[in-house]
Amino acid sequence: MALAGALERLQEEAICPICLEYMSEPVSIDCGHNFCRGCIAKHCQDKGLWADGPFSCPQCRASCHRSGFRPNRQLANIVESIRQLGLRGGAGPGLEPGTPLCPQHDERLKLFCEEDEEPICVVCRESLQHRPHTVYPIEEAAHVYKVKLQKSLETLSKEVEEVKKRESAERMKTQECKETVKKKRERIVSEFGKLHRLLADEEKLLLQKLEEEEKQILLLINENLARLLEEKCLLEELILEIKGKTQQPADGLLKV
Rank of each mutant, 00 (worst) to 15 (best):
6 A>G: 03
14 A>K: 03
19 C>Q: 05
22 Y>F: 15
22 Y>D: 09
26 P>N: 05
27 V>A: 05
29 I>V: 14
29 I>Q: 05
30 D>Y: 12
34 N>I: 04
34 N>Q: 11
35 F>S: 01
37 R>Y: 05
38 G>A: 15
39 C>N: 04
43 H>S: 11
44 C>V: 03
44 C>M: 10
48 G>A: 05
49 L>I: 15
52 D>G: 05
52 D>S: 03
54 P>R: 08
58 P>A: 08
58 P>N: 10
59 Q>V: 15
60 C>I: 08
61 R>S: 07
62 A>Y: 11
65 H>R: 14
71 P>I: 02
77 N>M: 15
78 I>H: 09
80 E>L: 12
82 I>Y: 09
87 L>V: 15
97 P>T: 06
97 P>D: 13
100 P>Y: 00
107 E>H: 14
107 E>F: 09
108 R>L: 13
110 K>A: 09
110 K>P: 00
116 D>P: 05
117 E>Q: 14
126 E>F: 03
128 L>C: 06
131 R>E: 09
135 V>T: 05
137 P>M: 00
138 I>V: 04
139 E>L: 12
148 K>P: 01
150 Q>D: 15
152 S>G: 08
153 L>T: 07
157 S>P: 03
157 S>W: 08
158 K>Q: 04
162 E>W: 03
165 K>C: 00
165 K>I: 00
166 R>V: 03
168 S>P: 00
170 E>D: 12
177 C>N: 13
183 K>D: 08
186 E>R: 13
190 S>G: 07
192 F>Y: 11
195 L>M: 07
204 K>H: 04
207 L>A: 15
208 Q>I: 02
209 K>W: 11
212 E>G: 03
214 E>H: 13
215 K>H: 10
215 K>Q: 14
216 Q>W: 02
224 N>Q: 10
224 N>Y: 03
227 R>A: 07
228 L>N: 15
228 L>E: 15
228 L>I: 14
240 L>V: 13
244 G>W: 09
244 G>H: 12
249 P>I: 02
249 P>T: 08
250 A>E: 07
255 K>Y: 05
